[in-house]
């Protein structure tokens, strides 16, 4: 009984993890199989013909995979930096400063959380087209520069920072910006890590917006590159396609594993699930 009580939760969690991990496993399995086995439903990890080398070589040589990855890094990095630079002071002001209409602002932010990206796509596209900014990195990044989600997440975390420490800092001569960046954000590193993972994963995997504003292969981030790849191959070689998918997924998995502890602390601390 005691044994059951001890291991039952783990068993349930493990069962829950299976459907989450299965697509990744399948992707990896397909990426090392030969074309003849692609439609085989067996989950046996060792294929009859190990085509891993061919598939990965093909994925790497057929399209400028490195270029796509670099594009992804530029776009995701750019978005993340501007998001943090704007959201942190906004969240600090909302959480710790007194000013008129603060509650109204907070309400607007929560309301803005409910607006889907797709609703804004058309005006943004028209705006970017009019200003001749289509087919630039800027076009891929600009709509995401101001993240209400980031403001909300940081606000939740900053709110719990002790007021007396902020007051002590004011008496010691810290400016508000120094308090915000050097003390309050310093105390919320788990939230920063959590937000970085959310933001990087979301924009690394985003296909929708780059597809709208970018037609130049040289600017394509990984998922859009994969799409071009599929087109080039007329969608026939799934093994190579999955090898490409495995390559572009890898950085995200590594990124999460590194930030895992902070990430989990960040979301449990702020109550965002």
């Amino acid at each position: 009984m005691a044994v059951l009580r001890k291991y039952l939760p783990h068993l349930v969690l493990a069962l829950g993890a299976v459907p989450m991990l299965l697509p990744f496993y399948w992707m990896f399995l397909t990426s090392i199989r030969s074309p003849s086995e692609i439609f085989d439903v067996s989950l046996w990890p060792i294929p009859q013909h190990l085509d891993a080398a061919q598939n990965y070589a093909r994925a790497a040589s057929q399209v400028p995979m490195l270029r796509f990855m670099l594009n992804g890094v530029i776009v995701c990095g750019g978005i993340l930096i501007v998001q943090v630079l704007t959201a942190v002071p906004a969240a600090y002001a909302l959480a710790k400063l007194k000013f008129p209409a603060r509650r109204l602002m907070m309400t607007l932010i929560i309301a803005a959380l409910c607006v889907p990206m797709q609703a804004l796509a058309l005006p943004l596209f028209v705006g970017l087209a009019k200003t001749n900014l289509l087919n630039t990195y800027f076009a891929m990044m600009a709509p995401f520069f101001l993240s209400v989600f980031a403001i909300f997440l940081f606000h939740q975390s900053f709110r719990s920072y002790p007021d007396e420490v902020i007051e002590a800092a004011r008496m010691d001569g810290f400016s508000e910006m120094e308090i915000c960046w050097r003390l309050v954000l310093r105390g919320s590193l788990p939230s920063l890590a959590a937000f970085a993972v959310f933001s990087l994963v979301a924009h690394w995997n985003d296909l929708y917006w780059p597809m709208i504003v970018v037609t130049d292969t040289n600017l394509a981030p990984p998922p859009l590159g994969m799409l071009f790849f599929a087109d080039v191959e007329s969608g026939a070689n799934y093994g190579a396609l999955m090898a490409g998918a495995a390559i572009i997924t890898a950085p995200m998995v590594i990124c999460f594993l590194f930030a895992r502890r902070h990430f989990i602390a960040g979301i449990t601390m702020t109550g965002v699930k």
Binding site: E164, V165, E167, A168, R170, M171, G173, F174
Partner: peptide, 16 residues
């Protein structure tokens, strides 16, 4: 506050 040259000790100590 910082220009008044006063030092404050808080109830929660407020250490960084």
């Amino acid at each position: 506050p910082s220009e008044r040259n006063l030092a404050m000790v808080f109830q929660s100590y407020a250490l960084y």
